[in-house]
Design a protein around this nucleic acid. Structure first.
Lengths: 179, 179
DNA sequence: CAGTATCCTGTCCGATACTG
DNA sequence: CAGTATCGGACAGGATACTG
């Protein structure tokens, strides 16, 4: 992976994974959201080897998720600040958090999203901005967009047409599993 | 990673990453959402080596995201069906998709989320289920939950208290970067 | 068709030591 | 404090061949 087949993907999910697909990348972002800015903030909180951190940080800067800001010339010192793309990753992370809480935290949630003012616990749901309808299947599905190539287009065409009939094999299948 | 420090994490994000942190895992899920069920569906669409696919699929079954369903005894044949946890991953994937579309698709989106009936394009936003308020910073932040250990608790306490003062270093910082 | 078995390579990552 | 340099291990993933 990452060497070849990934980069020729035009799928936005693959594109995203190219930026934050590494194990540490998302944890580094998590720390940034918690206020980490300096190299040692990340290093200590994550307990990560310094060389690894350097590489991850460089990759994230390269990916346009972090921005290096020099705050001291001599000696040279940098802060790692989130770019707009980086800040926009927060909902993705919170969606991941909600998923983990729901399915992989039998003892209850260790971390939650709360209202910063009142402390009220929030329950994250993905909705359509305009209609506020929850983005669920089968009410919504993915579809080829304007920039889609032939492959992407045909894959989604197939998926769309099979939405109603993909269980012809006789398997129990509740429809909510389709696209 | 994955060998040690990950497993002692009680952070829900780390827990989620333990399940779907591998490069292929999310792409495999993407295919499942597009209707893939059989081994060869995944193999052909992803252009993945069969041994790798076997390993990923086993790991995802192990993680509780897929369920193996035997539909033929002789010869033994399995379908890979999403569990509830697997189906619940869809919003996470769509959040990732929206992020990729917004920041890494200069030519425009190749894949979008649409209303399955009308075909209307949806714009995914993460909101609080009860109030429907968008989950943004600084209106919302993460906080230690009931099952948090001391470490998690103190990390979030620090983050919360630093919300207003973390820019004391004189760096430009717009506040929206804080937890 | 649905995998399993081998072999191999790349690289992510950890440990450690060192520098301005 | 903020990194860089070097070494080595584990494993994800690729290529290919083989089985029921």
């Amino acid at each position: 992976m990452r060497h070849k087949s990934f980069s020729d993907q035009q799928c936005p999910i693959a594109r995203s994974l190219e930026r934050v697909g590494e194990w540490w990348s998302i944890l580094v972002l998590r720390e940034a959201f918690l206020g980490a800015r300096r190299f040692d903030d990340f290093r200590k909180n994550l307990n990560i080897a310094p060389n690894t951190l350097t590489k991850r940080l460089n990759a994230l800067v390269e990916a346009g998720v972090f921005e290096r800001r020099r705050y001291s010339e001599r000696p040279p010192r940098d802060h790692y600040a989130l770019t707009e793309a980086g800040r926009d990753f927060r909902p993705v992370m919170w969606a991941l958090l909600a998923w983990g809480n729901k399915h992989f935290a039998p003892e209850g949630p260790a971390v939650r999203v709360v209202d910063a003012e009142t402390g009220a616990v929030a329950d994250p749901v993905l909705v359509d901005r305009a209609t506020l309808r929850p983005l669920r299947s089968p009410e919504f599905r993915s579809a080829a967009g304007p920039a889609a190539d032939a492959t992407t287009r045909s894959r989604h065409a197939r998926a769309a047409s099979s939405a109603g009939v993909s269980c012809a094999d006789g398997l129990s299948c509740d429809g909510s599993q389709n696209v």
